[in-house]
């Protein structure tokens, strides 16, 4: 089984579009015999978002709905993961869309390569405030350079990995307004690489990233938010 851990906040009607996309992914998996558990974390969600999530047709018996007041993406993801029952965990965002085969192909990819693999969609399509597309970075590709993570995050937050990975490496607290630390996904990428996990691209899969005028990412970038202390860039004992 794969648990799709998705965080919702104040997406409003945009949440409905994401839920429709997740439902499509779920159907694709279940038609191929892969059970899907939806774990939705409603972190300080507004009433409309809460209603849309609770009433959506994709939510079935056995799925998990959690109301939280973390105000923190990292902690909310950890909370969702702690309630997830799947052998595999997918991390999704409440305002994006995903290619139909993303969850299923990722699980197949991990089964073929091993539980040390962390899957990312091969492509990212940005849409909304601006439109663009790119291929993400494969850790085993020639151009990959781990030192590049010092200045730039290579991947979006959407990942699929074995649940052991998330138990080994939790998401860091991301309270950028009070502590100056954020980009919990970037930090998680650094920590997992330091522990020897391999970040791979799953061929012919894609995430569709809704770019908004004001988003958590744009806010963090404008405020020069940092990732927390990470083992990847720590001074090691000789």
């Amino acid at each position: 089984m794969i648990s799709a851990v998705t965080t919702f906040h104040r997406e409003g009607y945009l949440a409905q579009i994401t839920l429709n996309s997740i439902e499509r992914c779920r159907d694709y998996c279940e038609q191929r015999g892969l059970k899907v558990e939806l774990v939705f974390v409603l972190d300080r969600a507004d009433a409309l978002t809460n209603k849309l999530v609770r009433e959506h047709s994709c939510v079935k018996a056995g799925d998990v709905l959690i109301e939280a007041s973390n105000g923190d993406l990292g902690l909310s993801r950890n909370l969702g993961i702690s309630k997830a029952g799947g052998e595999f965990i997918a991390i999704l965002d409440g305002d994006d869309l995903y290619s139909e085969s993303w969850l299923f192909d990722s699980v197949e990819f991990i089964k073929a390569r091993g539980n040390h693999i962390i899957c990312h969609p091969e492509m990212v399509v940005n849409f909304g405030m601006y439109n663009s597309y790119c291929q993400q970075v494969d850790q085993e590709s020639e151009e990959f350079d781990v030192d590049g993570l010092f200045a730039t995050n290579f991947w979006t937050a959407w990942v699929v990995a074995h649940r052991d990975v998330f138990q080994q490496v939790e998401y860091a607290k991301s309270d950028h307004l009070t502590s100056g630390f954020g980009h919990e996904d970037w930090h998680w990428n650094c920590e997992t690489i330091h522990r020897g996990y391999i970040h791979k691209l799953v061929p012919e899969t894609c995430g569709f990233y809704r770019r908004k005028t004001v988003s958590l990412l744009s806010e963090q970038l404008s405020k020069r938010v940092h990732i927390r202390k990470t083992s990847l860039f720590a001074k090691s004992e000789k």
Binding site: V125, F127, S132, Y133, Q135, G148, T152
Partner: peptide, 14 residues
């Protein structure tokens, strides 16, 4: 409208 771009790997600072 969808422009292609390449993820820049800037390793010099690292």
């Amino acid at each position: 409208k969808f422009e292609h771009f390449v993820v820049g790997i800037k390793a010099a600072s690292g």
